[in-house]
Amino acid sequence: MTTSTRRIAGALAAATVSHPEPDAVEGTSAVVGGLPEPRRISIALEDVSKVYPNGRRALADVDLAVPDGDFVFLVGPSGAGKTTLIKLLIRDEVATSGTVFVAGRDVSRLSRREVPKLRRRIGIVFQDYRLLPNKSVRENVAFALEVTGTPGRQIRPAVERVLALVGLTAQGDQLPTQLSGGEQQRTAIARALVHEPRVIIADEPTGNLDPLISWEIIQLLLRINELGTTVLMATHNAEVVTALRRRVVALEDGRVVRDEVGGYHREY
């Protein structure tokens, strides 16, 4: 698939999904030659179901469209399917039915060889940081570029740039065990960001952090979002979600029960 056909596929995906929030679809549309180019879609799920081999139905008929530049909270009780949805997006699992588009690619149709290429277009942040314990902060961040075969002279400036962005320049040579939880998570975010992904997918990034540090992490993700990266964040943190009044997608028993700008809980 060429880039242009991918765009068309993405746009088609966007067109077929009815979006409940008109504001989000407009916004940053680029105007080329007088014609407004429709905003590209970062994430699109169409009619997605996932049944695990043990018979458990984790997702049922999920439709979701996230345009480029959006900031979306994914909420819902434990077992509602948040983690499964994220696993589908990063192709850790494959949907039983339906299509999953991420960064312009049909994830379910990717061959094994193409999976790494998808992962390079997205940044992934986990609750448990997943840093390599025997590598320094700088090495952990550089690692994401090294494994993609980026030349060393390009790696160093890119690493320093993201370390400055997350505010860890001074701690660059420390090992993860010498850092606080918040600093470890900021390292993970720097790693997720260093290859300039279109989408950042964060699975409970504040789950292990106290409220103050959680706010720092959220502020960091908001700033990254302002710089143009789409952010999808699964969370239980009701306080943060309600305060920020961003788009909230709520899952319950594997179904999308709410998709609107608002708080953590349904508001009537």
């Binding site: 998808l118 992962r119 390079r120 690692f143 994401a144 993609t148």
Partner: peptide, 17 residues
Amino acid sequence: SEEIEIMRLVGASDAFI
């Protein structure tokens, strides 16, 4: 195995792992 898992998540191709 954790290291391999992280390599996969940051988009390392099979050859690089």
